[in-house]
Each structure stands twice: as C-alpha cells, then as structure tokens.
Design a binder for these strands. Structure first.
Lengths: 134, 134
DNA sequence: CTACCTGCAAACTTTTTGCAGCCCA
DNA sequence: TGGGCTGCAAAAAGTTTGCAGGTAG
C-alpha cells in the first residue's frame, strides 16, 4: 500500500507496460493491458500487471480514469453538485460548484458530442485528516 | 437493462431504499444500504438492493458517484485533461478542457480542503453512435 | 389475473494476496 | 547478496442472474 519510502526497481515488465501506455491511444482496461503484454511476454501474470499499474500510478507516470461501477456511492436527487473524496478517511463531501453547463455546451459543440451527464470529483485531504497527517 | 418501455411498480423495498437515500447524508455504498435495509426489512436481499438502485437511477431519482476502482482505464502521463465516455460504444475520448485550477483553488479555500487531483468525466453519445441511435 | 418483483443462492467479473523462487541494483 | 519483483493460483470483493413463488395494479 505505502510505496513512499520504498525504493522502486526498474523491471522489464514494468517498462513494457509503461511503453505500451505511452504509445496507445485507446485508454485500455487492465484486461486489455494484460492481453497486450502477453503478446510481448507470454509468461506475464495478471498480478504483475495490477501491481505495476499501481506502482506507475503512485510514481505519477500514468493515471487512471474511473468511469464505471464498483465502489459506487449513492445519493438521492439528480447530481447537480460535485464531490470531494478524502483519501484517508474515505468520507465524501458535497460541493456547491458553479454549474458547468457553460463548459458542457462548449465541449458538446467542439467535439460534436451529446452529453447527458457528468461526474466531477476532487480527491485529497479533508480538514480533519490534514491535522492528523501533518 | 432497458427499463425505458417497462412499467415500474412501486414496491415497499424500493420505497424504503429511496427514503433512506433521501434522509441520509453519508453517500452510502451498496453494502451500507443493504445493511441499513436489513434493519428495516430483515429478509431483503442484495439482489433486490442492486436491482432497485439501478431502477431508481434510471428513473433519475437517485444518482451515483463513481469514485474508486474497477472498470478503470489507464493512460500514460498525468491527467491534465478530461474525458468523455460514450454510453453505447464505451469508447473514451480525451477532451482538451480549460484547466480547472481556478475552480480548484476556489473550492480548496471555501471548504478548507487539500486537493491533490480531480477526475472530470462527461457521459453521452459520441458522433458515430448518435447516427445509429437516431 | 398478469407480469413485474422478491429472496435465495450460485455464478461471474475484477482485483488482491500468499508463497516460493527470481533477478535488479 | 538482499529485498523488491515475478508467476501462479487461490481468495476476496462486488455485482449479476436464474428460478420459483409473491404481489401490485
């Protein structure tokens, strides 16, 4: 979990995964990354893929797009506000944010998209956890 | 999957779930909703909870906050752009969006948060799928 | 009455983890 | 050489689904 203090080695597997993500434009899933890696390194395992994706993300070399189910939270009403998730205590806070319809319209037009909804989440430390963690 | 054309009944289970979501402020997970419902209706099952959450969401009565793993997609680099997910073909497109640092600063200050990253996703129909689905 | 809904349990999907051996620094 | 890293496989976590009976409208 905590890779902060840990030295990190540069393995062939990790390099291959990173190279693939740098050259692809498809935003692959872990499954798709695993399949691609098997072509280049038939003995690679799923565990290795997941472990390296975590490490690469912690190093800030890649990032994740969370776009679909699991670890979903529910609330009533339509989503006309955004959310903050505390990385430590996992609490979710509602945020009153200036509405993004301006931005949404702009993007719809520019990319010719039909946008039905959006999801804006900020991650970080809540006031209480900021005190505890220095 | 497609509840659009289906008449929807008003069952006790569904009403209890909706009532709970209306009065709670905690953004519960499906698991937490299930545990709460068991207090009010000990025989309720997980399947019923999930099915009703889907229905309530399709009706627009509740909404979901997707904030953590699974169905994650990866890409290289740090996330300085936002994404669009097509609900039909599942393709993910990068969007060049005016940066949100202004908004981020404003929110940090107002809510006393330490924000380390954000995730902005728009959902809808991509140009190709708009043609197919009328 | 009809067909949507429920509880139950099994199946599925995706991710995590323990372990013994490997190999990068 | 040491300790992070790997492949393998089993386990865990979370969600979906088939079925037979229940119930709202």
């Amino acid at each position: 979990m905590d890779n902060n203090a840990m030295p990190i080695r540069n393995t062939n597997q990790r390099q291959l995964i990173f190279d693939y993500l740098k050259r692809t434009l498809t935003h692959p899933t872990a499954e798709q990354i695993f399949q691609q890696m098997r072509k280049e390194l038939p003995s690679i395992s799923f565990g290795t893929v997941y472990r390296n994706l975590d490490i690469l993300e912690k190093q800030g070399l890649i990032s994740t797009i969370i776009y679909s189910k699991e670890h979903v939270r529910y609330h009533s009403g339509t989503m006309n506000h955004s959310h903050f998730v505390c990385s430590v205590c996992d609490r979710i806070e509602d945020l009153e944010v200036d509405d993004l319809s301006e931005l949404k319209n702009q993007i719809s037009r520019r990319y010719k998209l039909k946008i039905s909804k959006h999801n804006l989440i900020f991650y970080g430390l809540c006031p209480a956890c900021q005190k505890v963690y220095k």
